[in-house]
Design a protein around this nucleic acid. Structure first.
Lengths: 352, 352
DNA sequence: TTGAAAGCGCTAACAA
DNA sequence: TTGTTAGCGCTTTCAA
């Protein structure tokens, strides 16, 4: 690795001298501020290039004085995964305040587009440097996101994206790939067909209206039909991420089909799904794959009831969102590789 | 989330005033520097606690002026995984120089304890704030690490640890758990016993003398014998991470045992292992699990030759090492959760 | 369109 | 044992 500058504590002043201008002018060019003759801009840019000059972030941060404020717009319900994200944000307080960063959490009903949109609109003019939002993909939400961006606030979508908006970044996984991964695991772990019957696979989702759930199911079916066509995927049960409802629907399915060999739980409601599976007495025979590592799924994995959990690292998502907002606010480049959220396969022996 | 301080750009000066001392004294207490009466220390500490004061890192960084230097002591051979780590370090140059951090890579023969120890000793007095080292667990290496630490340099071990040394931190995975994960995957993917023969599993390692390889094998055997006792693990082949040697040894094994159903490649030499497997004509029947995502393993996963790769994220390791060294040098707390390296299971559909 | 100068909050040398 | 003070490298008025 070569450092571009051997031992170059080069400063703005050096650049200013080389370009034959003052500190203030270099600063203007550096931040694309108006009021500099094009010719001067060029001279300064050249000096910067020539020395591959990097302004010292600590100095910049100190000089601007003002603290930065970020808002996290999160679902108000008792979703364990979202609570984990919030708790990891909480663990960052020391880190945040040492950098004069403030993070505020705004709880709202992210499943109601108009409520969510209103919450977002309310942030405009609130003097936020950045907003992270668990977004529902809906026209009014998209409009609100765009309004925020137009107002100069940096916006990242978290966990759930609005690709058609002008949000600056998305922090989350590719849900189609996650569904494919789940499909491959179920297919591989069930093994080749035994006997005459095809072997059936049950799917429980919160709702097919949710973009992430729909995408996961899509990916799942893709893999099963392409590679494990000896398996028959049963119609999706919509449990609304509720334990009881999921349990009842699944119990009914189990009683109807004696040859279920695989089970994919797309969203939450895990408690109910596990209960129905247990009651069926087929815990050990059915391959059960779900999402996210929570207190419950951890227990189920250790017990051997669940075979694998597809997960995204909530701590990573929380930190990545903060870092990305900060980089965007500072106008620094983002380390894409660092901020990319991976699809984790978690089994008993690699539980985090 | 509540911020401990509503809008508290509290500064050292405020603390000084509250404690009735000067800036310098607060600074001394903050950094546990000597020359302050115990009573004064108490008063200052109280003021700090009371306000949950966090010094502004940017200001501190700027004031101390001096750039920090870190050395990364890496294997000199053509190990793709290590090259990935180096390349991710390379991608950080912008980030590093904006913080006035310099990272130097020192290539050495990490497999020769005395050479490695000498390389480490050579760094003492070299004015390094921190050293990251891919360490061989050997008494002379341990001694060199301890010497560095005693000289005031922060030391983190990378990928391979020397637990008995006084290194400040280890950045890498739990290799026993990684081996267990590999074992569980092989066991689960092979499926239940078919027919009369037990089904045999081959293991290819670099050397059982390497701590990480030995630990992986240990974990692997643990799981196979406990949970998949219908599988018979064949004696470990030591391919020294070399393609040709691995290929020859494995080819011989395949010709001797017609009933090999699983293959675990513990280290490198993947090219040779894959070749032997291909030549045996049993690519599709044998469950093949290895380590790390490289150009080659990626291809093998996509082709369906390899079934899973156990991996540790090289980019994460590179960045975590830098961040941890920086935090150690600054005397800041480390975000353990953030710096922990996970054991990733990578299959075709969740390839990063 | 450009420049001069006063800080930002801390560290470290020096003085007391 | 404690305090005073001159910067660190930027940003941001305010003046020219």
């Amino acid at each position: 690795m070569k450092e571009p500058d051997p031992s170059s504590p080069l400063t703005l002043k050096d650049i200013a001298r080389q370009a034959g201008v003052s500190l203030a002018t270099v600063d203007r060019v550096l931040h694309n501020r108006p009021g500099v003759r094009p010719d001067t801009v060029r001279r300064v840019r050249e000096a910067i290039e020539r020395n591959s000059f990097q302004p010292h972030v600590a100095a910049a941060e100190l000089a601007r004085g003002r603290a930065r404020r970020f808002a996290f717009v999160m679902p108000s319900g008792p979703n364990p995964f979202m609570q984990q994200i919030e708790s990891y944000l909480g663990e960052m307080t020391g880190w945040l305040s040492a950098r004069r960063l403030a993070v505020e959490i705004v709880a709202t009903d992210v499943f109601d587009a108009s409520v969510l949109a209103a919450s977002l609109e309310a942030l405009i003019g609130g003097d936020y440097d950045g907003v992270a939002v668990v977004a529902l993909d809906h026209p009014s939400v998209r409009a609100a996101v765009n309004d925020l961006v137009d107002a100069g606030t940096k916006v990242v979508t978290l966990v759930s994206d609005v690709p058609s908006s002008r949000r600056n970044h998305y922090i989350g996984i590719d849900n189609i790939a996650a569904g494919r991964t789940a499909g491959a695991l179920v297919g591989r772990l069930v093994g080749p067909r035994t006997g005459a019957s095809p072997g059936k696979v049950a799917i429980v989702a919160g709702s097919q209206g949710l973009r992430d759930h729909a995408e996961r199911i899509f990916g799942f079916n893709q893999v099963i039909s392409a590679e494990f066509s000896h398996l028959e995927v049963l119609p999706v049960l919509e449990g609304r991420d509720e334990d009881e409802r999921s349990q009842q629907m699944l119990a009914r399915l189990f009683s109807k089909h004696a040859d279920i060999v695989g089970l994919y739980n797309v969203g939450a409601g895990t408690q109910g799904v596990a209960k129905a599976l247990g009651d069926s007495g087929r815990e050990k025979q059915v391959v059960f794959v779900g999402h996210d590592v929570t207190v419950l799924t951890r227990k189920l994995l250790l017990q051997g009831v669940m075979d694998a959990a597809i997960s995204q690292n909530p701590g990573h998502e929380a930190r990545a969102a903060v870092r990305v907002l900060l980089s965007l606010a500072r106008g620094e480049p983002i380390l894409i590789e660092q901020e990319k959220i991976r699809i984790d396969i978690v089994m008993r022996d690699n539980l985090p």
